[in-house]
Computed example of a mutant assay.
Amino acid sequence: MDLDVSYIHQLRQVVALADDGRFTEAIKLAVAFRSEAVRLNGTRSPQAVRWIEAEAHTAYLAGDVLRSSQVWMSAAMVRLARGESGYSAEVEAAVDRAHHQWQQLSDPYDINRLAPELVALRIRVPGRQFGALEAVRRRSEVSVYDTFPMSASYA
């Protein structure tokens, strides 16, 4: 994919903000550039996908694992909707990154809220790591019990 000069210039602006620790501003700028890319080129355009991925990576740098996981999943879904194969390097990378960020979540509510979407992606994009789909299923089942622990009186 050819990267045009304006994209590189815009990406440098986002990176500079992130390098300064100004993550909220960096994410807002990436979202604004994505909106512009969608307006000019369409929702599924390569330009829009690049900005979705830039937002996801910036959220990762900011330590916002929930947002990073959600946005990486969006990037994968857009790539799949564009007709890219579930075995393409870019789609696999987006799903793997979403999965990795999801693994970092500690709130059972967030784990279970994102699990169905991640399971759906893992069915379409199994990735190269054996057992990734089952790992999502196991973790989400465990977190259900963390959310609703059984008391001794019900056991």
Rank of each mutant, 00 (worst) to 15 (best):
Q101K: 15
Y87R: 15
V65D: 05
P46L: 10
A93F: 05
Q47L: 04
Y87L: 13
R82F: 02
S88T: 03
A54E: 11
V71P: 01
Q70G: 09
A48M: 10
H100A: 12
I52S: 00
G63Q: 09
G83R: 08
S106K: 09
D96E: 09
G86E: 02
A89F: 08
A62I: 03
R79I: 01
S85P: 05
Y87E: 12
Q104C: 08
E90R: 09
A76I: 00
A94D: 13
E84S: 06
E53Y: 10
L66A: 10
A59E: 04
W51P: 04
T58I: 09
A48Q: 02
L61D: 01
T43W: 13
D96I: 11
S69H: 08
H57P: 03
R82K: 07
M77R: 15
S85W: 04
A54D: 09
A89E: 14
G86R: 04
W102A: 07
Y60K: 15
R44D: 15
W72S: 02
Q103G: 07
A89P: 10
V65C: 14
M77W: 07
T58K: 12
E84K: 06
R50C: 00
L66I: 03
R67H: 05
V95F: 00
G63R: 05
A93R: 10
W102G: 07
S45D: 01
H99D: 13
Y87T: 10
D64V: 03
V95D: 00
V95C: 00
S85C: 02
L80N: 03
E53M: 13
S88D: 02
A48P: 04
V65T: 13
R50Y: 10
E92M: 12
H57D: 13
A94P: 03
D107F: 08
M73Q: 13
R97Q: 12
R44P: 11
V71H: 02
R67A: 11
G83C: 02
G63T: 01
Y60G: 14
R79E: 08
S106P: 15
S74M: 10
A54Q: 13
A48H: 00
R97W: 12
Q70R: 07
D96H: 13
D96W: 14
Q101V: 08
E84N: 12
R79A: 04
V71Y: 02
W51F: 06
R67N: 14
G63E: 04
A81I: 03
Q70F: 01
N41I: 02
E90C: 09
L80G: 02
T43D: 15
A89V: 00
L66C: 11
E90G: 03
Q47D: 11
Q103K: 04
S85F: 04
A98H: 03
V95K: 01
Y60N: 15
H99T: 07
S106C: 12
A48K: 06
W102Y: 11
A93G: 07
Y60H: 15
E84D: 14
N41D: 11
A62Y: 06
P46R: 06
S69P: 03
Q70M: 15
G63M: 07
Q103W: 12
H100N: 14
A56R: 05
L40D: 15
Y87M: 13
G63D: 10
E90F: 02
A98N: 08
H57G: 15
E92T: 07
G86I: 01
W102Q: 07
E53P: 06
A54H: 08
R97H: 15
L105I: 03
V78K: 12
E53R: 15
